[in-house]
Amino acid sequence: MKVRVDEDKCCGAGQCVLLAPEVFDQREDDGIVILLDAEPPEHVHATVREAAAVCPAAAIELSEGA
């Protein structure tokens, strides 16, 4: 899995950070997403998928496979 975030779309809701803090963080000044791990380990894939699904701004893009 590869993860991309679009900072321009991000509204700073923070749902991704709550679900997958090992993959996402937020900037202190405005809450915009920070991607910590663009290729997270398999054991967190389900939570990363959930984070992308619940993102109110659709700012998280996933690509599956090799």
Rank of each mutant, 00 (worst) to 15 (best):
V17Y: 13
R49V: 05
L35I: 06
A38E: 15
E50Q: 13
V3L: 08
Q15G: 13
E50V: 04
D29P: 04
G31R: 03
F24C: 03
G14W: 11
G12L: 02
A59M: 02
I34H: 04
A51V: 01
E64C: 11
E22K: 03
D29W: 07
Q15F: 14
F24Q: 01
D6R: 05
D25N: 12
A57N: 00
E64M: 08
H45M: 10
C55Q: 04
K9N: 00
A46S: 14
V44F: 07
R4L: 10
A52Q: 11
V33Y: 08
G14D: 04
D30E: 06
G12C: 02
D30N: 09
Q15D: 15
E50C: 05
C10I: 04
A51L: 07
K9P: 01
H45V: 07
D25K: 10
E61T: 15
E39Y: 08
E22P: 05
G65F: 03
R4Q: 15
H45Y: 15
K2C: 05
I32R: 12
D30I: 02
C10E: 05
I60T: 06
V3Q: 01
A51C: 10
E61Q: 13
A59N: 09
A58I: 12
A59Y: 05
L18Y: 12
E61P: 05
V5W: 03
I34F: 08
C16E: 06
V23M: 06
A38K: 13
Q26C: 03
G65T: 04
E39F: 04
E64N: 05
E61S: 11
I34K: 06
V17D: 07
A46C: 08
E22Y: 06
I34G: 04
V23R: 03
I34S: 06
C10F: 00
H43E: 15
H43Q: 14
D6G: 00
D8M: 13
V23L: 09
C11N: 14
F24V: 03
V48Q: 02
C10Y: 01
I32N: 03
Q15M: 15
G65H: 11
V5Y: 01
A46L: 07
M1P: 09
H43M: 13
A20D: 00
P41L: 04
V33F: 03
D29R: 09
C11Y: 11
C11F: 12
C11T: 14
K2A: 04
Q26R: 08
Q15I: 05
D30G: 01
P21C: 05
